[in-house]
Amino acid sequence: MTEISQTTDETTMTIMQRFNDAFLTHDPGLLDGLIAEDCVLENSGPPPNGSRHVGRQECLAFWSGIAASRESTFEPEEIWTAGDRAVIRWTLRWGPGPEDRVRGVNVMRVRDGLIVEGLGYVKG
């Protein structure tokens, strides 16, 4: 049976904006109320298939590490939502040079006001 979500674009957008705020302000505490117990996160590294993190604690630890880093700057470019789904286009910078950055996207899914899936991809 297919799961039908009742999550609206507005709800999903609000959650994605709160998620992004944690990275923009380097405040991982903002992630605390956003991640579901059964969340699954897939990261783009290390090659070739990236890493997979399952459960609230693993996902929270991974995202908190990025959010807390003062050596990097997260720049969201655009957020699209469609019901319980969202795509966040972003740039991550860790230095002043043009080679000190990467662009990517997160494909996200929300259920009951919490993030249940985050799939990250970067341009290689």
Score class of each variant (00 low, 15 high):
Gly97Thr: 06
Ser72Val: 11
Glu37Arg: 03
Ile115Ser: 03
Gly113Met: 06
Val110Lys: 02
Val54Thr: 10
Gly33Asp: 11
Arg85Phe: 13
Thr14Trp: 00
Thr8Asn: 13
Gly104Pro: 00
Asp100Val: 07
Ser5Phe: 08
Ser64Ile: 04
Glu99Asp: 15
Met1Asp: 12
Gly118Thr: 00
Gly45Asn: 12
Pro28Cys: 11
Ile115Ala: 06
Met16Pro: 03
Gln57Ala: 15
Glu75Trp: 00
Ile35Trp: 01
Gly29Gln: 02
Asn106Leu: 08
His26Gly: 09
Arg93Met: 07
Ile15Trp: 00
Leu31Trp: 03
Glu117His: 10
Asn43Phe: 10
Pro76Met: 07
Trp80Tyr: 14
Leu119Cys: 11
Asp84Ser: 11
Arg70Met: 11
Asn43Cys: 15
Ser51His: 04
Pro96Gly: 13
Gly118Arg: 00
Ser69Ile: 08
Asp84Trp: 02
Ile79Gly: 01
Pro96Glu: 08
Ile79Glu: 01
Leu60Tyr: 05
Thr8Glu: 07
Thr12Trp: 00
Glu37Asn: 14
His53Phe: 12
Glu78Gln: 15
Ser64Glu: 05
Glu58Arg: 01
Glu71Met: 14
Trp90Ser: 07
Glu77Tyr: 03
Arg85Pro: 05
Leu41Lys: 02
Ala61Glu: 09
Glu75Ser: 14
Phe62Trp: 08
Ala68Trp: 03
Arg56Ser: 13
Met1Leu: 13
Asp112Met: 06
Thr11Ala: 15
Met13His: 10
Thr14Cys: 13
Leu34Asp: 01
Phe74Asp: 02
Pro76Cys: 12
Thr2Gln: 13
Cys39Ser: 11
Lys123Gln: 09
Val87Pro: 03
Leu114Lys: 08
Val107Ala: 15
Leu60Gln: 02
Met16Asn: 03
Asn106Asp: 14
His26Phe: 09
Trp94Val: 06
Gly65Ala: 08
Pro28Met: 01
Cys59Thr: 00
